[in-house]
Design a binder for these strands. Structure first.
Lengths: 342, 342
DNA sequence: GTGAAAGCGCTAACAA
DNA sequence: TTGTTAGCGCTTTCAC
């Protein structure tokens, strides 16, 4: 019943016959300032005792081995995927993640950032709403900050994003090339969220290129009425000319698809279907959904590595925007031309 | 460019004209041992200075305000959902989550547990594989431990699970009642994972009740060949007698459905479809999928509250198994009888 | 190369 | 009711 005392740096020092300072040096890989045999000895003792440094104590002085990760919602496939990839890199480097949600609420985001900073996190990776940029700038003066997904020009912070504009343009163009006479873009309110703006702009740009009128339908996720009004609009369209809908992200399509499926307009003719994002269920719909695969894994990886580099050397800061390309995946849901299937 | 010094308990003490002890007492809500005006004064100063206690320092002595959450895979809908609900409760209580993955690997699980304990976590919520029970028992002697999803008899730990057996039995029975002559249970290897065993047992039990032969098909997720052999089996069945497939979890159905959809056997007649779990895409399939909704939110909530209670008072330990019921949701994918739709 | 010692911000006896 | 003080486990000068 008695709590087994933890093995501390002192135990290791005593057992190895050195001072705790030397052990500390070993832990921090200051091998230069250490004799070969001392190093080997300490290593052996740590092994034998199964010693694990207390990260809280380590963090008390300088920055801790915890990295804050702030996302809008951990249940969004994009977020989950990025977090997992960050986690992979950072765990291997001996860091832990503190994942927090903001629900897209700037106030909550602010609180979360402050709370993380109050814990001496060693770095911050955040999908921000863009309303705490001053705070983030301040934080970035103290520790490495990487913005992910949504881009904002903040001094000393690195942005890791995908090419939302181009991918959106490419997808839209592909739909026109396929023969659809009109593409309807379905999106949530854009606010100042860069990803939404860029996807929208990529869409309108492609429309211009193809001399088509853009048609944007605004919805609010979770608000059934807004979804239904989209369906109403679709029903008004002439079925003689094929048209395509294109949702700005997978979550919208997830909500919209059941309605679309039952509204009586068949796909892919006259109605094409396409979405940004590549949800895990794209293979379930009939026909399979044309979509845009974001490089979530690479984004997380890049962000994590950047943080590690900056922790090692704050001068590597080189704040800039890293753009990792998305891939358009054309499937049957947007295939007008009948092709021989091999 | 100069790093702004953090506001510490000392600043608050000085500003309020009291000792740091008193401030510390305030922080820990030891209001009884404190004058009314002192309390008000401290509160005011903390407000004014925007002081936030350093959680690392707090944790250095006793247990920290971090709670470890260990799951198999944070991208599994079940896990995400539970984590979010835990996060909600614990954030409000001033705790932070350290979420870790095991990928179902006992070695990794062991490492993760040890690493968390080495950080003085205040409590541990874990979906364990069941191969580190000795370690968990040891950990539970030091801090509150709650097992989630998968049940194991470990002294001093609370289990939070759903009624896998009954829900599985109920679903299977419902399929028989619907008129399906046979139900095929599709599952991964059971190992010693209680949820899988119980779902399997609930299924076989229902088969016995209905005097039907159980038929279990084993698959391995990610292994396409095993999925295809399931389809082969299905194709061998007579289409005169309606039969139903029932997958042991949503991930299996996600992989299997595309094959099922294209194999030529229509649903819900002669082939019914059902799955444990309620993935977000149940509304996308045609017909909608019959499924089992797990009380993920309540499970996370219960686990989090239990941890909080035990932190406050280790005697509340009352180790036991809390069973939160799942709900069977019958949809068109298992509807044989033609009913008037109102 | 190595160690002594002073903190990091906070908690918790023990005193007063 | 409040304060003094000794740590918690580790990092980091500064000496040796």
């Amino acid at each position: 019943m008695n709590k087994p005392r933890r093995i501390t740096i002192k135990d290791v020092a005593r057992e190895a016959g050195v001072s705790i300072t030397t052990v500390s040096r070993y832990l921090n890989q200051n091998y230069e300032a250490m004799g070969e045999e001392t190093r080997v000895k300490i290593k052996e003792v740590i092994q034998r005792l199964g010693y694990q440094p207390n990260k809280l104590a380590q963090g008390l002085k300088g920055p801790s081995r915890n990295i804050g990760v702030v996302v809008v919602n951990m249940s969004y496939p994009f977020c989950v995927s990025v977090i997992r990839s960050i986690s992979k890199i950072l765990s291997d480097a001996g860091y832990n993640l503190m994942v927090c949600e903001t629900s897209g609420d700037p106030q909550r985001e602010k609180g979360v950032i402050q709370s993380l900073v109050a814990q001496n996190i060693g770095g911050l990776i955040i999908q921000t709403n863009g309303e705490n940029n001053a705070l983030l700038e301040e934080v970035a003066r103290t520790l490495p900050v990487v913005l992910i997904d949504r881009e904002f020009p903040i001094p000393a912070v690195t942005n890791v994003v995908t090419n939302n504009f181009h991918a959106s343009e490419k997808l839209t163009s592909a739909l026109f090339h396929e023969g659809y006479q009109q593409v309807l873009f379905i999106t949530e309110s854009v606010a100042q969220i860069s990803t939404r703006t860029e996807r929208l702009n990529g869409y309108t740009h492609a429309c211009q290129q193809h001399a088509k009128d853009p048609r944007i339908l605004w919805i609010e996720r979770g608000n059934q009425a807004t979804l239904e009004s989209v369906i109403e609009e679709l029903l008004k369209l002439s079925r003689k000319d094929p048209f395509s809908i294109y949702t700005a992200n997978g979550l919208i399509m997830l909500e919209l698809y059941p309605l679309v499926k039952d509204c009586g307009i068949p796909s892919p003719r006259p109605m094409g279907l396409a979405t940004f994002d590549e949800p895990d269920w794209v293979g379930l719909t009939v026909p399979h959904l044309t979509c845009v695969r974001q490089p979530t894994f690479q984004m997380g990886e890049y962000a994590a590595k950047k943080i590690l580099m900056q922790i090692k050397d704050r001068n590597v800061a080189t704040p800039h925007v890293e753009v990792l390309p998305s891939t358009v995946i054309l499937s049957e849901s947007s295939r007008l031309a009948s092709e021989a299937t091999p």
